[in-house]
């Protein structure tokens, strides 16, 4: 990571970070035990650890979604791809296939799904919402087809470890996901990929005229997003030790889009903030946990989420921005 980007990102993630921190502080005031982390039988436990673990799966999907949204697109099919990947895992493990091969297949099938989306969007020029809607609808059916409509229980303890295991007392899944975030960050920022993605999202015509391979770049981000969803499907299946093709990944596309937008990447494309997405995903999970701690039934939790997203999109809207700047100017004069 280079210095200029660090500074810029730091400025831009200040908002979501402030939101996350104030939520944590609020919780800590309400319940001092909230931030407490204990070491039990060599494993860390506590609400913050739970938040990390719980958000890992959505966070991974949001990683791919960040890049897709940065090109000015969106991928609605990720939830269905999660279900497909989970189904593939269950069937292959039941069949006695090696764990590594299983995971590779799940990720590969996710990438294939992403590639199809990319083909529709980049080569055939289909609107992203429309193109990914196809797989969103059909994908869950395919997942159910793979597992024959059953919920297949997975018995492999090695497989379960991926989601629920601990390494040196730290839960493995969030560590894996955060490592992927760091790796992705380095790959896109150390190569020119990040620049290309932002360029395409900011002004596609100008990017094409400057000689960028726009279609290839777009296909690539959808492919990556599919692969992330595939791996997330592995985590989901490992977490519940089963492939539930009906519920796995349900509403995940929405949570992922939320995390990206709350994290400061605009839905219109252009600049993206990988770090912002991490914070966005954590913020949403913390909000859910807070609701839970306050005794609000989990089913009502979408309400604050909805208010948050409206607030964030209003803050990002140009009209409100101009109005706020106007207020500040008046204030400065007065």
């Amino acid at each position: 990571m280079t210095f200029g980007e660090t500074k810029r990102e730091a400025r831009l993630v200040a908002w979501p970070l402030a939101g996350l921190l104030s939520l944590l502080v609020l919780n800590a005031l309400f319940d001092p035990a909230f931030l407490k982390i204990t070491l039990l039988e060599g494993h860390f436990y506590g609400v913050p650890v739970d938040i990390l673990t719980q958000s890992a799966r959505t966070m991974l999907v949001s990683l791919g979604m960040t890049l897709v949204i940065a090109t000015g697109g969106v991928d609605l099919s990720v939830g269905s791809v999660v279900a497909i990947a989970g189904a593939v895992c269950a069937v292959m493990l039941q069949d006695g296939q090696a764990l590594s091969l299983t995971i590779a297949a799940a990720v590969g099938i996710g990438a294939l799904a992403g590639g199809i989306n990319g083909l529709l969007v980049a080569r055939l020029g289909v609107q992203p919402i429309v193109a990914t809607l196809i797989l969103m609808v059909a994908g869950r059916g395919l997942a159910q087809l793979i597992v024959g409509g059953q919920v297949i229980i997975i018995t492999s303890s090695a497989f379960e470890f991926i989601s629920n295991g601990f390494v040196l007392g730290v839960p493995f899944a969030p560590v894996l996901v955060l490592a992927l975030f760091v790796a992705t960050h380095f790959v896109v920022r150390r190569t020119a990929l990040g620049l290309f993605v932002e360029a395409v999202g900011d002004n596609e015509t100008a990017s094409r005229f400057a000689g960028l391979a726009v279609a290839r770049i777009k296909t690539l981000v959808y492919l990556f997003c599919g692969a992330c969803a595939g791996l997330s499907g592995v985590l989901v299946a490992a977490n519940i030790k089963a492939a539930d093709s009906y519920r796995a990944g349900e509403n995940m596309e929405l949570d992922a889009i939320f995390a990206v937008v709350v994290g400061g990447t605009a839905l219109t494309g252009g600049r993206f903030l990988i770090l912002g997405t991490v914070i966005g995903a954590l913020l949403i999970q913390t909000l859910t946990t807070t609701m839970y701690n306050l005794g609000v039934p989990p089913a009502v939790a979408p309400v604050p989420k909805a208010l948050l997203i409206i607030a964030v999109s209003l803050l990002q809207s140009e009209k409100v921005g101009r109005w706020l700047r106007g207020l500040f100017k008046k204030g400065a004069v007065a």
């Binding site: 200029g4 290309f196 100008a206 005229f209 000689g211």
Partner: peptide, 26 residues
């Protein structure tokens, strides 16, 4: 057809050269 309005002068300036070199040779 020219500028990437929200990106920096530096990014706008290197875009064509970088496009010519490809993503993996930043």
């Amino acid at each position: 057809e020219g500028i990437l309005p929200n990106l920096s002068v530096r990014e706008n300036l290197v875009l064509a050269l970088q496009g010519k070199r490809g993503a993996i040779r930043p």
